[in-house]
Amino acid sequence: MEAYEILANPKNLKRRKIINIVMLTLSVVSGLVAIIPLIYILFYTTAAGISSLNLDFFTQLPKPVGEPGGGIANAIVGSVEIVGLGSAFGIPIGLMSGIYVSEFSKSFFANIVKFVTDVLSGIPSIIIGIFAYGVIVLQTKHFSALAGGFALGILMIPTVTRITEEMLKLVPISLREASLALGISRWKTTLKIVLRTASGGIITGMLLAIARAAGETAPLLFTSFGNSFWSESIDSPTASLPVQIFNYAISPYAEWHQKAWAGAFVLIALVFIISLIVRLITKNKFSQSV
């Protein structure tokens, strides 16, 4: 019985134990490795950004190189405007589709919708930018906040659909049954019982989608473009926070870099706070509904 001897060989056992320890250590180390750039980015951006944050940053227009002070108020307002337009377009579509996929999932068509939503979420954002350019900018012959909002809206759709679907599926079927058994119609059951029960999770999920959209740069480069001043309307070129950061970051001027760091810090803070809220709320949600 050679096999047993090999297995019982203490050397062999020792080797297995060493492999065990090495691999487990590697696993822990890789966890740390992934954290290092994260912490680095968070701290570096905070340190570099917070020093140039002041009231002017939020309230003043950009100043030309060489003049001290100034801010990126127009970019912040522009971002709010573009993201607002995007939300107005993307959230209803995403929400309703999520309801369809979750509540009427019996149908074959729901699976197609799910697949296509996955496809949409995999399309690089720059391509959505090209699309919005072709559909809006090319037709109206000028860059506009509207085109940027359209692009961001499309980008938000898959996230919102997915989150709505998942949150609605967390609502136990017994609640739907209870409501239907009272003679409440299906649509009222869905909107006033199911959606309301899942509303915490859905709202935070949407905040997350909005935060992501707020950080998108690529699709805005040639849709909403940029503007050094206040934009006149949603039909004209509009500055946005990420594009402004990009333009400042690739410029050769140190003072603009400072502004860019401050902008980056604002973006990260936004993402961080929203993720934290999402985390807290979904945690409560789970413990309550189970």
């Binding site: 017994s174 049954e177 209870a178 409501s179 239907l180 058994a181 009272l182 003679g183 309301r196 509904s289």
Partner: peptide, 20 residues
């Protein structure tokens, strides 16, 4: 389906009040 459920109510195995 709405009318029938107004005439024929149902109570389920597990209590299921609306949590909100």
């Amino acid at each position: 389906s709405i009318d029938i459920r107004k005439k024929v109510g149902m109570v389920f195995q597990k209590p299921n009040p609306f949590p909100t």
